[in-house]
Amino acid sequence: MKKLFRKNDLIVIAVILAAALVLLIPNLSKKQSLTATVYADGEIVKIINLDEVKESYTFSPKDGTEICVENGAIYFTSAVCRDKLCVKSGKLYKNGQTAACLPERIVISISSGENSPDMLTY
């Protein structure tokens, strides 16, 4: 007569739960392109795909403020503010990171392309 429960049953359960977890992985690490959005005075002035940057370059969203763009990262290099917290924020390279020069109202924000729409309607 078969028993109700055997040790092998635990193996079965473990395998299935492991499979369930494995299936969750694609949901978490979808390949996305790193995008940096630069705002000045609340308006977007530049959207940069950091993965596609071939050569580093700098630009000035406002006089006195300089931002450097390289492959996979973006950061303030100089600013006219007093405390230079923006420059001190260092390189931004991950989803969700932000750096801001508050007195100048300049913000750099990183987002992954996951949320970019397939198509725009206008």
Binding site: K2, K3, L4, F5, R6, N8, D9, V12, I13, I16
Partner: peptide, 20 residues
């Protein structure tokens, strides 16, 4: 599973496999 003579799995394990 149920017709095999081997008793490696209990009813619970078999039930789970069938449900899966």
């Amino acid at each position: 599973l149920l017709r095999s003579r081997k008793n490696s799995l209990g009813y619970i394990g078999i039930g789970i496999i069938c449900a899966v």
